[in-house]
Design a protein around this nucleic acid. Sequence first.
DNA 1: AAAAAAAATGGGAGTTACTCCCATGTAAAA
DNA 2: TTTTACATGGGAGTAACTCCCATTTTTTTT
Lengths: 214, 214
Amino acid sequence: MNKLKVYIADDHTFVRKGMIRLLNTFDRIGEVKEAANGNELIALVKKTIPDLVVLDLEMPEKNGFDTSKHLIDHYPEVGILILTMHTEEVFILNLIELGVHGFLNKSAEPEEVERALYAVADNDFYRNEIVNHALRSGVRRSTEASSAKLSPRELEILLLICKELTPHEVSTRLQISEKTFFNHRSNILGKIGARGNVGLVKYAYQNHLLELSA
Amino acid sequence: MNKLKVYIADDHTFVRKGMIRLLNTFDRIGEVKEAANGNELIALVKKTIPDLVVLDLEMPEKNGFDTSKHLIDHYPEVGILILTMHTEEVFILNLIELGVHGFLNKSAEPEEVERALYAVADNDFYRNEIVNHALRSGVRRSTEASSAKLSPRELEILLLICKELTPHEVSTRLQISEKTFFNHRSNILGKIGARGNVGLVKYAYQNHLLELSA
DNA sequence: AAAAAAAATGGGAGTTACTCCCATGTAAAA
DNA sequence: TTTTACATGGGAGTAACTCCCATTTTTTTT
């Protein structure tokens, strides 16, 4: 019987150490390694491929999303469990599409952590309330009038707005008329259900299009 | 030699458990109790007054700020250490003024945690980089031309803007003319160095006047 | 291949959201 | 007591929008 090799990446020492201590109490968990960010974790994986990785989303250097993408591209056999703080719906949907194997809230009980680890190792996917909630809201999105899936152009414009560019600056940079800019902006506002730039920036933050550190 | 009684409040199980595990390795730390939010912690304190408490800022029910206020009012002899995620300058300055005894980042090393606990127990205050940084930014605020210390009215208006209220709605609610609203808004923009609502919302997020979950 | 839907573009006309500069009373510092 | 910050407001002009409409291209569905 070979035990599971698990790597964890989280920049917060307490979370990391707490998780390691917990993992060591589980029967089927063997070697545990730790990393403070995505790059460190990828370096560990490069040396020896683990059975599972546990990833925080917000990390310096390389965040959980980019790390997941890299792992799925290069090491598809590794099970990925995402550690979340809040339930960032849209981000979670993106991660599910990307192919991660499960989600755990940082306030999860030890039993759930164990269940999640074994589910990913044995069945390839751990479905819990976080996933259900995200999927439910995803259904809502695609049936309701105000769908939140932005087109590439809209995303581009959203990001430029978030950089504090004026309408004139954006339209000049993109070589389109201000009219077109405003049309795009209105469409974005409609899709995300906001009234103006305030709601737009909040959407960007909540969907991790913008980071707190930037 | 009586050991230190420490209570910890944090809604994230991993952080809490990790901290408890760490505290148990320290020589001078005796009994450790835990709570998932401020109210639970206050209930514990009511029963037996501890030497130190370690508080997370973001918690359900009662957050770290309100909990600190309550403890300082009712149990001034208790040492308060705040556990922070990012370095929320404005919030930290408020907490220092309130009278908390120290700050620890969640990614702090075990050695620093031990140092901080003993410093608060022995000298009543633990001064580290987090505090220095907050104080420095506070000095900058009061000497530089573009001061970022908002007046109460300005803060009120900033928050209403962040709730996606229109200028008309804000001025109606506050019973002031739209002119006055715009004057306040301009002053805010000047102080925080922003061009419009985009920068304003970003400022609110970065200074934790707004939370990602909201 | 044909039809439909979504994406990207732009205009006319009107309203709202601002900016810049100025001014006043009041309260708190120096 | 003279500053300095705070909260309030006006006049006049500009930039930032909204609403409704229309065209072309690309992508998806049938």
